[in-house]
Design a protein around this nucleic acid. Structure first.
Length: 953
RNA sequence: GCGCCUGUGGCGGAAUUGGUAGACGCGCUAGACUUAGGAUCUAGUUGCUCACGCAGUGCAGGUUCGAGUCCUGUCAGGCGCACCA
């Protein structure tokens, strides 16, 4: 009987579906394990071989855990909202739901062929109202919450309102917007609804704010910071400008410290933790208040170099800063306005590509609180409005940006560190002894001086001094910005928000979900409203039927609904919780399910989500944790980042001087140097095997190659190759379906893992796949003799060698899977199977263990062999074998004898020989005499089981 | 500029705590069986050398009886952040 993978795989995939082999339910008697893949966005292109890499890796781990007695949750679903379906809809008028559904079906078909152990009963789709119900619900919960800095957790907004009613903003320590507002209880109580609503927006975790946003005209929508790279949109590469707009935002910044601290409690790679740390950007410094000369205006700056306060020679405000208008003098107003106008017109891209020194003097002076000096206040775009306070003190001697500015505008530079030469460039290092603080002949405030201290000491001393004097305070700043949460798009979750006289109100919880309406066209409206502006009738229906009735408001009133939709990361921020209890209509996840599954134990996905999804969902989960909805503060315990699979393109070489329009001539790779005009042309990789072109297939590939001629080497046409991104235009996309058809799913699974470490990026190269295919055939031939079709399995006593081979394998594979070192596991399988073959071992027990071990990697063949061995049930429910150390021991040890660290010869010893025996026997050995030869023995080092090193002089 | 990671044959990649570098696979070479081989099997395959041997993990040093592994410097490639005060 041959290894007929087509029949085997078809048969078992059907059995698994029929028997619900992978269905999982909460079972308090078994330990749980939660394996999760980042769910895919179902794109129209379908899967290529790179996509399943992570799924296979996690599938192996899930199966391994199950074989070890764990109750394993391994779900799959779809991140179904997204831009491509919507852009396709704009072009063709086809509803994105239809496109998405088609793509999902295609994905599912492809996934099913690979033999994953997903529990499809738990599938979720972010675009399903039963699912986004809970996305909207979480948003409402965030709207109705604020962040208490003392308790370090989210709290119901009612608690804050009660505080405001009692004592205003007095004694409040909460996360809030950039402008700290304060008012009394009387003032609060005197406010009308609209004013109160506006004031609360400053505290809500989900809030609507007038903020600087990344506006992408090309996409017609705003974008979050992680969706913009180098001034252009990640999707589409359109330019992005900064614009002030009223948008929904999430106060992610409130959780900055917890997001940072949480990283120490989870097992993620250093590089991704580092990326998140950078993104959060914690920076400890000092805030100092500067008074404006001849004015009541005061403003605050943030600095990490408090030690340099004696060297401040000018101040700089961000162009967007509110202080600009307050400090600009009449005489400078025209020039400042002109400058601000210029800055506004520049896109992010321009700002980044040309870093010109620009700026303008406001006409005002600030008073340095330590020296009493009056220093000019400037405006420049190099100071960012979004970071710190949007204002800085400039110390040109010790900051390169300030230095460039000072040189350009001829402002003074005072060096503050002994021996620092600032004639050519600034001295930015945070080291040295402080001088000129204050300068000779001058006096610091109350005699304050930093001279003679190290930089570190000076920073500490200044912090202490300004705090005591009440002119400053220690402050921690974060680079992490609040997430802009609304998009001017159609294909996303609608906001459960309606407007009552301009006041945003949440749709009552019992009316959720607010379903995405049908609209006639997917473009923005003529008046510039988002696409949902076209859904007037729907808005009326929804509001009246669902909201107004419920709120018992006059039926004739039509409240406008919010016309925005939520961004892509909304739906992916809590999907791991929903998988725990996907059909629950009452809550996001039941207490019981959540407390059983708790959190994802193993999360597998790409690094590209490091500063997006992986930050947002940690934030989202922490918020839900504060309310006890999620019982773990960190959602993803261990994270594995699978590498990207690049494409391996093949080329044919067209010879210009020999080709005509209807008869092109191609030269084989190694002969191309013999011709002058040789043009490489991408050729579809499916027409090439082991870099040899299938000439007939190539001729049929395209009409223009019908009459092609070939200059061959050794009777073959050899193609060139290159590593490129896997893409249609390079003709290097490899479809897993083709591999499954030609080699089977088990070979595909093995080969994807054998390519290299899961975490490494590597090119797909089908050339090596035969090795894995051969291995499975060899495994098969331990059971069946191909020629005679004879069943070989017997119950004869296994030899010592066979026991050793199999137990070595058990030990190796167990260790390797735990370490996600799948490629070395497969090597071990190859060695073991080849050893058993040589030993002619067909022992039932040995083979049974091998079948269980291979089951996570190649489940189909394992299941088939399992049944042929006469075992009952599925191999999935077998018990993972344990190795026996006794079988692994040798009765003889082969050790290497070296002299002065140089290996010389091999020597055999009894396994139980003592160190002294080994040492003596080695010194007595004839071969040793040659190297000893009258030299003195300094030391003998015996490394157990490995090496004897004799140090001689 | 700051931070992080990686450098091993023709290729993908192996090497517990420092202990015979190159496992395993691809490719290549030779042989066997074949009408045939892009099937299968066997043997070989880091380089130089007929050989004994010698050299060898980006480069230069260091620690050690012994370094791919540890330390210092340096070069190259990749990733993240970036006018963040």
């Amino acid at each position: 009987m041959d290894y007929n993978f087509r029949e085997i795989e078809k048969k078992w995939q059907k059995e698994w579906v029929d028997h619900r082999t992978y269905k999982v339910t909460e079972d308090p008697n078994r330990p749980k394990y939660y394996v999760l893949n980042m769910f895919p966005y179902p794109s129209g292109a379908g899967l290529h071989v790179g996509h399943p890499l992570g799924y296979i890796a996690s599938d192996i781990y899930a199966r391994y855990k199950r074989l070890n007695g764990f109750n394993v949750l391994n779900p799959m679903g779809y991140d179904a909202y997204g831009l491509p379906a919507e852009q396709y809809a704009i072009k063709t008028g086809q509803h994105p739901a239809i496109t998405t559904e088609q793509n999902i079906n295609r994905y599912r078909e492809q996934l099913d062929k690979i033999g994953f152990c997903f529990d499809w009963d738990r599938e979720v789709r972010t675009c399903d109202p039963h699912y986004y119900h809970w996305t909207q619900w979480a948003f409402e919960k965030m709207f109705n919450s604020y962040y208490d800095n003392d308790l370090k957790k989210a709290q119901p907004i009612d608690k804050l309102i009660a505080h405001l009613e009692r004592q205003g903003t007095e004694g409040l320590n909460v996360a809030q917007g950039d402008d700290t507002v304060s008012f009394t209880a009387e003032e609060w109580n005197a406010m009308d609804d609209k004013q109160k609503s506006d004031a609360l927006m400053n505290y809500r975790i989900a809030y609507k704010g007038e903020t600087m946003v990344n506006w992408c005209a090309g996409l017609g929508t705003v974008l979050a910071n992680d969706e913009v790279v180098e001034g252009v949109s990640v999707r589409g590469g359109f330019p992005v400008v900064q614009k002030k707009m009223s948008q929904w935002c999430l106060r992610v910044s409130a959780y900055a410290q917890r997001l940072l601290d949480g990283l120490d409690t989870i097992q993620w790679s250093d590089s991704i933790k580092e990326t998140q740390k950078n993104w959060i950007g914690r920076s400890e410094g000092t805030e100092v208040e500067f008074r404006v000369k001849d004015s009541d205006v005061k403003f605050t700056i943030f600095t990490t170099r408090a030690d340099t306060m004696f060297g401040v020679t000018f101040m700089v405000l961000a162009p967007e800063s509110d202080y600009v208008s307050q400090v600009t003098t009449e005489g400078q107003k025209a020039e400042v306005d002109k400058y601000i106008d210029y800055v506004k017109k520049r896109t992010e891209l321009e700002r980044m590509s040309d870093r010109k020194v620009t700026g303008v003097f406001t006409g005002s002076y600030a008073i340095n609180p330590l020296t009493g000096d009056a220093i000019p206040i400037w405006v420049s775009e190099y100071v960012l409005a979004g970071y710190g306070t949007g204002a800085i003190m400039a110390v040109p001697a010790h900051d390169s940006r300030d230095y460039a500015f000072a040189k350009h505008f001829n402002l003074p530079i005072i060096p503050l560190i002994e021996g620092a030469d600032v004639s050519e460039e600034s001295f930015d290092a945070k080291e040295g002894i402080v001088t000129n603080s204050p300068c000779e002949g001058k006096q610091g405030l109350d005699g304050f001086s930093l001279n003679g201290l190290t930089v570190k000491e000076a920073i500490a001393a200044t912090k202490k001094f300004v705090t005591e004097k009440g002119i400053g305070r220690v402050k921690v700043n974060y680079r992490l910005r609040d997430a802009i949460f609304s998009r001017q798009r159609y294909w996303g979750e609608p906001f459960p928000v309606y407007y009552d006289n301009g006041i945003p109100r949440m749709v009552p919880e019992e009316c959720l979900p607010i379903e995405l309406p049908e609209i006639s066209e997917y473009k923005p409206t003529e008046s510039g409203e988002p696409p949902l502006g076209r859904a007037k009738k729907w808005a009326w229906d929804t509001v009246n039927k669902q909201v107004v009735e419920n709120a018992k408001i006059d039926q004739k009133t039509v409240f406008p609904l919010d016309l925005y939709t939520m961004p892509g990361f909304a739906g992916s921020s809590a999907y791991y919780l929903r998988y725990m209890d996907p059909h629950n209509e009452e809550e996001l996840v039941s207490k019981k399910a959540d407390e059983y599954w708790r959190h994802v134990d193993l999360y597998v996905g790409g690094t590209e989500h490091a500063t997006g999804h992986l930050i947002y969902s940690r934030f989202w989960n922490k918020f839900l944790y504060d309310y006890g909805v999620s019982c773990e503060e960190e959602p993803f315990q261990k994270l594995i980042n699978q590498g990207m699979i690049q494409g391996r393109s093949n080329f044919v070489y067209r010879v210009g001087e020999l080709s005509t329009a209807d008869k092109p001539v191609f030269v084989s790779y190694n002969l191309r140097k013999n011709y002058k005009e040789v043009t490489p042309i991408h050729v579809w990789v499916n027409l090439v095997k082991n870099d040899i072109l299938d000439i007939e297939a190539f001729k049929q590939w395209s009409p223009e190659y019908k009459n092609a001629e070939f200059i061959l080497e050794d009777g073959k046409y050899v193609c060139g190759w290159a590593i490129e991104k896997m893409s249609k235009s390079m003709y290097n996309v490899v479809n897993p379906d083709d591999i499954v058809r030609d080699y089977g799913a088990d070979t595909l699974r093995l080969y994807e893992m054998f390519l290299g470490p899961v975490e490494a990026s590597k090119p797909w190269d089908t050339n090596g796949i035969d090795g894995c295919f051969r291995f499975l055939k060899k495994l098969w031939s331990l059971f069946w003799e191909n020629r005679t079709d004879k069943w070989l399995v017997d119950d004869a006593e296994p030899s010592k060698d066979s026991l050793k081979s199999v137990h070595k394998l058990i030990k190796k594979v167990t260790g390797d899977i735990e370490a996600f070192s799948y490629n070395t596991s497969i090597s071990a399988f190859m060695i073991c199977v080849s050893e058993l073959g040589q030993q002619k071992c067909h022992n039932r027990e040995m083979l049974r263990d091998v079948v269980i071990l291979i089951a996570p990697f190649a489940p189909h063949i394992a299941e088939e062999l399992w049944h042929q061995l006469g075992e009952k049930g599925s191999v999935c429910d077998a018990q993972w074998p344990k190795w026996n150390e006794a079988y692994l021991q040798d009765n003889e040890l082969q050790m290497t004898v070296s002299f002065n660290g140089k290996a010389r010869y091999q020597k055999m010893f009894p396994a139980d020989a003592s160190k002294d025996d080994i040492q003596q026997a080695t010194l007595d050995d004839e071969r040793s005499k040659k190297y000893l030869d009258g030299k003195q023995i300094v030391k003998v080092i015996v490394v157990p089981k490995k090496i004897i090193n004799i140090v001689i002089k």
